[in-house]
Simulated scan of single mutants.
Amino acid sequence: MAGEESIQRLSKPCILSDTFAFNVLIGRRWPSREEDLREAATICRELGLGPLLDRMPGGLMQRVGETGWRLSHGERSRVYLARALLQGAELVILDESFASLDPETQKQALECAMKRAPTLMVIAHP
């Protein structure tokens, strides 16, 4: 199927016991380059994760997951969103990605996604 190689799928989002950077840069080249880390930091801050990154002693290189830093449900949702945006797909489909966010954070995350995704489909259930 034409264009299929640009489709990135992760059936069940998860946080792996590795660095924050690794978790948001899944789907990109690894090890990451300096420009990847800069873009990841920029997108995470646009998604409202700046205070989290500032609190973590290792910043982007802080280990997270089962044995590392604890992330709230809303923080996890924004990590998944950052991951999707950083993959560079032509179409990003978000299914209930904003459900665990408060209205202000939801607005901030949606604005970031609309700015960053070439084509964006948002699925929300009432």
Results as ranks from 00 to 15, higher is better:
Ser32Arg: 05
Cys112Arg: 04
Ile7Arg: 03
Gln8Val: 10
Val24Leu: 04
Pro57Val: 01
Asn23Ser: 09
Met56Gln: 04
Leu81Gly: 00
Leu52Phe: 05
Met1Cys: 13
Gln87Pro: 00
Ala124Gln: 10
Leu71Trp: 02
Arg28Leu: 03
Glu35Cys: 09
Ala113Gly: 05
Ala82Cys: 08
Asp18Gly: 05
Arg63Gln: 15
Pro51Gly: 03
Ala117Gly: 01
Pro57Asn: 09
Glu35Trp: 05
Met56Asp: 00
Ala40Glu: 01
Gly3Lys: 06
Arg38Gln: 14
Asp18Cys: 09
Lys12Val: 15
Asp102Arg: 06
Ser72Ile: 01
Ala21Pro: 00
Asp102Phe: 05
Gly50Cys: 05
Gln106Phe: 00
Leu16Cys: 14
Leu47Gln: 06
Leu25Glu: 04
Gln87Asn: 14
Gly68Leu: 05
Gly88Asn: 08
Ala117His: 06
Gln108Phe: 01
Glu96Val: 00
Pro103Met: 03
Thr67Lys: 12
Leu81Gln: 01
Asp18Tyr: 03
Leu94Met: 11
Leu60Ile: 00
Val92Gln: 02
Ala2Val: 12
Ser6Arg: 14
His125Ala: 12
Glu66Met: 12
Val79Gly: 06
Asp36Ala: 08
Glu111Met: 12
Pro51Ala: 13
Arg28Trp: 08
Ile93Pro: 02
Arg76Cys: 10
Ser17Gly: 13
Leu120Ser: 07
Cys14Leu: 14
Ser100His: 02
Ile7Val: 12
Leu110Asp: 07
Thr67Trp: 12
Glu46Cys: 06
His125Leu: 11
Leu91Met: 12
Leu53Ala: 02
Arg29Ala: 12
Val122Thr: 09
Glu104Arg: 10
Thr42Val: 08
Val79Ser: 02
Ala41His: 09
Leu110Trp: 06
Leu47Arg: 00
Ala124Ser: 11
Glu66Arg: 08
Ser17Ile: 07
Ile93Arg: 01
Glu90His: 13
Leu81His: 03
Leu91His: 00
Ala113Thr: 03
Ile123Arg: 08
Arg70Asp: 10
Ser72Glu: 07
Leu47Lys: 07
Pro57Thr: 06
Arg83Asn: 09
Ser6Pro: 09
Leu81Asn: 02
Gly3His: 01
Phe20Ser: 04
Trp30Phe: 08
Glu75Gly: 07
Ala82Arg: 05
Lys12Glu: 15
Ala41Glu: 13
Pro103Asn: 06
Leu16Arg: 08
Thr19Cys: 07
Gln87Ile: 11
Pro57Tyr: 03
Met114Ser: 15
Pro118Thr: 06
Leu85Gly: 06
Leu49Ala: 01
Ile123Pro: 04
Phe98Gly: 14
Arg45His: 12
Leu91Ala: 08
Met114Val: 13
Ser32Leu: 10
Arg63Tyr: 11
Leu71Asp: 11
Ser72Lys: 04
Met114Gln: 14
Ala2Trp: 05
Ala99Ser: 11
Ser97Cys: 15
Gln87Met: 13
Leu86His: 05
Ala99Trp: 02
Ala2Gln: 14
Leu94Gln: 09
Pro31Ile: 00
Ile7Pro: 09
Arg116Phe: 07
Tyr80Trp: 10
Pro31Gly: 05
Gln108Gly: 03
Arg116Lys: 10
Gly59Phe: 02
Ala40His: 00
Met121Arg: 03
Glu39Val: 00
Arg70His: 10
Val64Lys: 01
Ala40Gln: 03
Leu110Glu: 09
Asp102Gly: 06
Leu10Pro: 07
His125Gln: 11
Arg116Gly: 09
Leu10Ile: 14
Asn23Gly: 08
Leu47Asp: 05
Gly74Ser: 08
Ile15Arg: 03
